[in-house]
Design a protein around this nucleic acid. Structure first.
Lengths: 213, 213
DNA sequence: GCGCAATGTATGGATTTCCATGAGTTGCGG
DNA sequence: CCGCAACTCATGGAAATCCATACATTGCGC
C-alpha cells in the first residue's frame, strides 16, 4: 500500500493528536509533516508531490474552514477535516467547498486512512490534469500576438480565406500564422488543435454556417 | 422572484411539515407538490420542468439518503435535505452525493428558500446541458454503422486517405460517409464536428503524427 | 546602426478536400 | 420479387490546404 510519492500534512493544535496521527501515518508507510497552526502550514516549504491536508477545525490562529476558503483559489491539496466539536452546517460547508471528508473525533483509523487515500488519489488526478494544462499554457505563451488572434478563428472552423478577411490580411500570411500556431501548440492536426483550444478555453469567435453564411 | 416555470417536490411524512412548506412555497409564488413517502414520490407523475426535491431523511418506507442513492443514476432533480435528527456522517454523505444543502430542523425560511433557489438554478443548468446533449445523441442515432466508424477516424485528425485505408475502403467512399456524418450531426465545420464528438465522448482512435509516422 | 523577431506579401506546385453525377452490390422487409 | 437503405466505387472539376522559397517593413534592443 506504500504510495509512489506523496506527503500528508497534518495541522492540529493538540500535540497528542499530531503525534498519534504521525505515528499512524508512519505505521502505514506514509510520509507526514505536522504543523501546530494554520500559519505554520501556510508559510512552510512544501514539497511538490501529491499531498493531502488533515485539518483540524479549531485552530489557534484561524478557523479551519476559513483557511480552506482562503486557499481555495490555488493549488492546494485536498482537505480531510477532523474536529472534536463539529456541527452539521460546518460539515456541509466543508464538503461543498470540496473537502474529501469531515471526521469527528473520535474516528477510526480505517476511516481516516480511507479518506487520506481518496484525497491522495484525487490530488494525483488533479496534478496530472494540471500538468497537462500547464504545458498547453506554456505553448500558448510562445505564440505571438498575431498568432493568438489567428488561433480562435481557425478553431472556429473558418476557412483560411475567411479568417484572413477577418484580420484584413492576405490568405497566404494567415496560412503562415496558422502553420506556426500548429507547430508551437504541438498539434498534430486541426482536430487536435481544436481539442487543445477547448482545454485552454479559447472562445469560438465566429462559426461558419454550412449553407453559405 | 417568481420563476419562469418550475416545481418543488416535498417529501415528508409529517403532515404539518408538508402543509407548512407548501404554504411557504405558495407565499413565495412557487409551485409545490407534497408527498407523504418516497414511494409516492417515485411513482408519481412528475411534470418535465426545472425542479428540486425537499427531502426528509426519516421516511416511513425508506431512508432519504438511500432514496438519493437509488435515483442517483438518472435525471433526478437536485435535493435539499431536511431532517430533525441529522448527524454529521449523513450530511457528509448527502453533500458528497450531490445534495444542494442539508438543513436541520428547525431551519429558517430564508435558508430553505436560498437552498431551493440554488437547486432550481442548478437544475435549469443541468437540463439545458442535457437538452443539448440529447440532441447530439439523437443525431448520432441517425448515423449508419459505417458512419459511426468513420466519425472517430475523422475527428482523430486522420486524412481521408488514411481513414479510408484504415477501413479498407476507397477514399471516395470515405468522403461520402464523412460528408453524411457532417450533415447528420449538423456540424458546420470539422472544428465543429470535433467539439461535438468531444461532447459525445467519441474516443480518439488514431492520432496522426506530424512528422509522417 | 545592425541584428532580430514579428508581420506582411507573392509565386508556384503538390496534396487534399469538396461536391456532383452516375452506378453497382448486398441484404432486409413487404 | 420489388423497393429501399446501406455501402461501395469512379470520374472530373473547383476550391482549399500545405509547403518551400524569396523578400519588404517595422520596431525593439544591444
Amino acid at each position: 500500500m506504500t504510495e509512489d510519492d506523496h506527503i500528508v500534512f497534518i495541522v492540529d493544535d493538540d500535540q497528542r493528536v499530531r503525534e498519534a496521527l504521525s505515528e499512524l501515518m508512519d505505521a502505514h508507510g506514509m510520509r507526514a509533516i505536522a504543523f501546530e497552526s494554520a500559519g505554520d502550514y501556510v508559510t512552510a516549504d512544501k514539497p511538490d508531490v501529491p499531498a493531502c491536508l488533515i485539518l483540524d477545525i479549531e485552530l489557534p490562529d484561524i478557523n479551519g474552514l476559513d483557511l480552506q476558503r482562503q486557499i481555495a483559489d490555488g493549488d492546494h491539496p485536498p482537505i480531510v477535516f477532523i474536529t472534536g466539536h463539529g456541527d452539521i452546517p460546518s460539515s456541509v460547508r466543508a464538503i461543498k467547498s470540496g473537502a474529501v471528508d469531515f471526521l469527528t473525533k473520535p474516528f477510526s483509523d480505517a476511516d481516516l486512512l480511507t479518506a487520506i487515500h481518496a484525497a491522495l488519489a484525487e490530488d494525483r488526478e488533479k496534478r496530472s490534469g494540471r500538468a497537462e494544462l500547464d504545458m498547453l499554457k506554456r505553448h500558448y505563451l510562445d505564440l505571438t500576438p498575431r498568432e493568438r488572434e489567428v488561433l480562435p478563428l481557425v478553431v472556429s472552423g473558418l476557412l483560411n480565406k475567411q479568417a484572413a478577411a477577418e484580420l484584413g490580411i492576405s490568405e497566404v500570411t494567415l496560412q503562415i500564422h496558422r502553420r506556426n500556431v500548429m507547430q508551437k501548440m504541438a498539434a498534430a492536426s486541426l482536430a487536435d488543435l481544436v481539442r487543445i483550444a477547448e482545454k485552454l478555453e479559447i472562445p469560438i469567435t465566429h462559426s461558419r454556417r454550412v449553407g453559405g453564411n
